[in-house]
Amino acid sequence: MSLKKVFKYWAGKTDMKEHRRYFILSCACLLSVSGCLSRNSGPNPDIKLRLYNNSAERKIFHFALEDDGGIDEWITREVNAGTDETVSVEVDRNQMWNTFHGVIDDHVITGELISPESASCIELRFISEIDDSDEPEILQDATEGC
């Protein structure tokens, strides 16, 4: 049986009210999930990076963001002992950044970048040492402005 014959048979068995009802229900279902398909509804947030050197010696921090296409440019900063520095990370707001990478000495940190619902800024705190540990950390927080 051809597709044309099947359609004629199906069309003959139903009335226009049923077609309309099916169409309206289909549209309602599609519209109800259309906002859930993207990771976030607005543009990607700005990113502020704070580098904290809690050690007794000068440290070199390396940081990069990654999306599905690969790693972006590395940011490298030397921070004196017992000080901190704030860096505004220039990002392409149309890309979906999903991972961050950080390196201090021989320590490598990789983590998933948070996806805030309504915040306009992600603040990353790259800390060289926490509580007399040699292990660095990258903490993140979503805020309303950088």
Rank of each mutant, 00 (worst) to 15 (best):
residue 35 G to E: 01
residue 36 C to E: 07
residue 24 I to R: 03
residue 43 P to N: 12
residue 94 N to D: 15
residue 87 V to E: 02
residue 41 S to L: 10
residue 8 K to A: 05
residue 97 W to I: 06
residue 40 N to G: 15
residue 121 C to P: 00
residue 26 S to V: 07
residue 99 T to P: 00
residue 75 I to P: 01
residue 81 A to K: 10
residue 137 E to L: 14
residue 62 H to P: 07
residue 143 T to F: 10
residue 5 K to A: 13
residue 33 V to N: 04
residue 2 S to E: 02
residue 24 I to Q: 04
residue 125 R to M: 14
residue 112 E to D: 14
residue 95 Q to F: 02
residue 56 A to Y: 08
residue 56 A to L: 08
residue 122 I to H: 02
residue 114 I to N: 08
residue 127 I to P: 06
residue 81 A to V: 01
residue 52 Y to Q: 03
residue 133 S to L: 05
residue 13 K to H: 03
residue 9 Y to I: 09
residue 59 K to Y: 08
residue 145 G to Y: 15
residue 44 N to D: 11
residue 102 G to A: 05
residue 101 H to E: 02
residue 137 E to M: 09
residue 74 W to H: 13
residue 57 E to P: 03
residue 117 E to M: 12
residue 7 F to N: 07
residue 74 W to D: 10
residue 58 R to I: 14
residue 69 G to E: 06
residue 101 H to V: 06
residue 123 E to V: 15
residue 31 L to D: 11
residue 63 F to P: 03
residue 58 R to T: 15
residue 10 W to E: 10
residue 33 V to G: 02
residue 129 E to A: 04
residue 64 A to R: 12
residue 123 E to F: 08
residue 110 T to R: 15
residue 36 C to N: 08
residue 18 E to N: 14
residue 38 S to K: 09
residue 121 C to E: 02
residue 133 S to F: 06
residue 52 Y to P: 01
residue 138 I to F: 05
residue 62 H to M: 14
residue 11 A to C: 08
residue 119 A to G: 03
residue 3 L to P: 02
residue 108 V to C: 11
residue 106 D to Y: 13
